[in-house]
Write a protein that binds this DNA or RNA. Structure first.
Lengths: 134, 134
DNA sequence: CCGCATCCGGCTGGATACTG
DNA sequence: CAGTATCCAGCCGGATGCGG
């Protein structure tokens, strides 16, 4: 989750390039944090207002939703449109870049669903084996 | 990797795919943590020993590599093979499940590379605009 | 309605030292 | 070589209250 590390050293993966690591990590940090992907998912079918997103996601604090949206905006994945009315209105929408990332997120979500039971079985099996040993 | 926060919310997101979200989040948490993906990448071309991985990754502490590998093993993504010799030898290898996940990781890495400059531009632009306002 | 400021508990992850 | 154990700083994220 924290990508504060800067000194990723030298060498490729299997044929891939080395300096990619930082960027990959940086992107994965976005993907991996608690709310970003959920926000991207819910923005898939069009722009949403702040509290609309908050209700949809359910369980996210105002603070974290704000921070998450700022992060996504900073990376150019969503746009923030302010309408200075009373009460104020703010709409968030995926950019093209955001939509292209969303495809991969959906793919990953699909993978998670397909292998959900396999992973859960592996986890419980691993945990039960551990309990016997201890 | 503590998975203590994965089984929390207890309320649905918007009805339809409520329990899917938890699983997706749980998987994304694994993907998003600091070292898992790096390990999976380096295991792509065959099994590796503990210190071999440590050298390859470079910058990971013994502790974190152990924790990361335990997490991956627990989820059924890698296998751990102990050879009780002197000195002891432990090999880690991707499972089929791990390899299927790796495909998506590679896809994401590719996306990160393709859009690296776009994201960096978005970031610096966002930051400079912020500086003016403050 | 939107979002920032503040406080704070708990988890993450690094450094180090010690076993088998 | 391959861990385990311990300590500890720093950040993540929740709750609450204020401000435009």
């Amino acid at each position: 989750m924290k990508r504060t590390n800067t000194d990723v050293p030298s060498f490729g993966y299997t044929g891939a390039e080395s300096h990619d690591c930082r960027m990959v990590n940086s992107v994965l940090a976005r993907i991996g944090d608690k709310w970003s992907v959920l926000v991207v998912m819910f923005l898939a079918d069009g722009s949403k207002r702040f509290n609309e997103l908050k209700r949809l996601i359910g369980g996210v604090s105002q603070r974290m939703l704000t921070l998450t949206l700022r992060g996504l905006e900073r990376d150019g994945l969503v746009t923030r449109t302010v309408t200075p009315s009373i009460p104020p209105r703010v709409d968030y929408e995926l950019t093209d870049l955001g939509r292209s990332l969303q495809k991969h997120a959906v793919a990953l979500a699909g993978w998670a669903n397909e292998n959900q039971s396999a992973i859960e079985r592996a986890r419980t099996r691993f945990d039960s084996e551990r309990k016997q040993t201890s």
